[in-house]
Each structure stands twice: as C-alpha cells, then as structure tokens.
Amino acid sequence: MAEARRELKYWEAISEATVQAMEADESVFVFGIGVDDPKKIFGTTKAAYERFGAARVFDTPVSENALTGVAIGASLTGSRPVMIHARNDFMYYCMDQLFNHAAKWYDMLGGLMRAPIVVRAIVGRGWGQGSQHSQSLQALFAHVPGLNVALPSSPYDAKGLFLAAIRGDAPTILIENRKLYEVSGPVPKEPYALPVGKGAVLKKGKDATIVAFSQAVQDALEAAAVLKGAGIDAEVVDPRWAKPLDKDLILSSVKKTGRLLVMDTSWKSYGVSAEVAALAAEHAFSDLKAPVARIALPDMPAPTTQALEKVFYPTVGDVVHAVEKLFGRKRKGATRLRPAAKETFTGPF
C-alpha cells in the first residue's frame, strides 16, 4: 500500500471510528452524560453528532445504573449501543448491571444470547483530578467473567479496538486514558478491527520484557530507548486487552528474555499487573532469571496536590530504574523523584 502515512490524534481516531461504525451499522447509537453538549466528550462525539444528529447521539439523565440496563436491553434486541462515561469513577453506579447482567447474560442463560454493549470509560489522570476523578478500573472489569476489556495505547489502537468492540458480540469496556488524548500517530483511513484478545510487540528486544497497558506503554517505549543507551535491549509488549489476555504473546517474550517488568495504570494489588506476574510465575518460572518486577499505582486513592501526584504516578525514570534492577544494577540517586513529564492537560476538567 502506497497510502501516505496519515496521522490522527487519539481522540480523533475514536471520533473517526465512531462515525465509521455508525455508517456501517444503522443500529449503532451513542449515549451518555454530555455526549451532545458543547464540549462533546473532549471532542470525540462531535463528528458523529454533526453527521447523525440527536436521534443517534444523545445526552442522558445522570442515571448511570439505569442507563447501563438500558444499554443491555437495547443490545439484546438488535441495537448496538455505545455508552460513554467521562470518568471511570462514575461507573461504580453501573456495576450491578455490568456484573450481574451484561457479564452473565451469555453463560447464565445457556449461551442463547449475548449483550453486545460497548462502554467507553475515560480515565482523567493528573492535574489534581484526585481520588474520585482519576480511577482506572480495568482490573474490576476483567475480574468478573463475561466482559471484554481493551486498553488502547495509541491512536491506531483507539480506532482498531473500538471497531473490534462494536463488531464483536461480547460486552466490551474500552478504557481510554485522557493523558493519551492529544498523542498523534498513524491511523489508516479505512475501517479496521484489531483481533480480540491479541496484543502486539511494539519494540523487539532480547534482554528484558516490559509488558505495559494503556498510557504506561508510552512510558515503557520511552524507557526502552533510554535503556538501549545503557546497553539493555528491552522488548515492549502491549497486550491491548486485559481480558481476554494474550497469554501466548506475553509468555513467548518472557521465555525469550527471562526478565519481566509489568506496568499498569491502576493500583498494584490484585490488579492487572498481578495477573500478568502470576502468568509468568505459573508458566515461565524456569525461564525467569530475576524476580518479576511491577510498576503500578500505590495502594491508595489518588491525591490531588501536585506535590503528591508527582510521586503517586510513576515516571519514565522509574521504569528505567526497575529494568536495571532486573539485572542487579542500581542507579545512583533517587530516580523515583525525577520530575514527571511536562503536563499537557491543564484543567479545570
């Protein structure tokens, strides 16, 4: 293909995928709090609203619990609802409908029906978003059998995973990180769906494996470049899906390198990083040359003050440091306290 490399921002890729999905399938509609308001979910619903109007892109009452049930009911009767939450945090109100209903409909009812809802769940990390506006709930969603959970880390993935979700039959949660919204990358114009449960090796390497999700992928790639200079050839694996998890891809990389760092954008304990670490312990134990390392959020609600946010969220320096430790090397000085990358997100929302 000689097509010129076209770049889109992450949010533009979501917007384009939405329009293409709605073009391809009349039963797709988009709803959620503020989807048609002047800000249009950080711009992602603007094009769809302008193109398809209020009949297919509509605002809702602030009733997340009922709305999730509405999405399920619509999905069981031939509609393809896309439900949007500007924050993961608001979705605790959805949990009964998601876990007891959407996730169960297929197996509980003998495989007769599926509830193919698509839920876009945005994470508002940074800039003092704090404990109730910055949570990233992939581990919760992945824990209860019956839901698929995807975490796009680039504009390319944002489009391909959205279209995978909308074309697929399983209820799917897409975790979108606000920190990635302004990131640009190549995105093919034509519609394409990435395969469900398949990840990608984003940088090949032979010395150590970094498995990273969502926004952490960016930090992993940056760290891998720094590590290269320090003589460590790290492989960066993005599983793309927390559920189903691409176990084969992760294990083949770990078996090759013998060293594993897992990075997640949410809490450490009982999280997605723990799942990946357990996978390696169960199936690649004899290949490991060092204990598995993890970088994830400290087990506490996110603080708002910039003084604490700075250390609450890991930095590229932390990643470099953690990989070097897999080789028994120690950096001088506290990389942990390196200043975070420049904030592009300047609030107030």
């Binding site: 404990s131 708002t304 003050t305 003084a307």
Partner: peptide, 14 residues
Amino acid sequence: GKKTGCTKGRGGSM
C-alpha cells in the same frame, strides 16, 4: 495543595 489544607492536599476543591 498544601499540607495546611483542610484535607492536607489529598482531596482538593471537591
């Protein structure tokens, strides 16, 4: 975001 704040900078405005 100061430690003399009513939640010591943990909670913020909300």
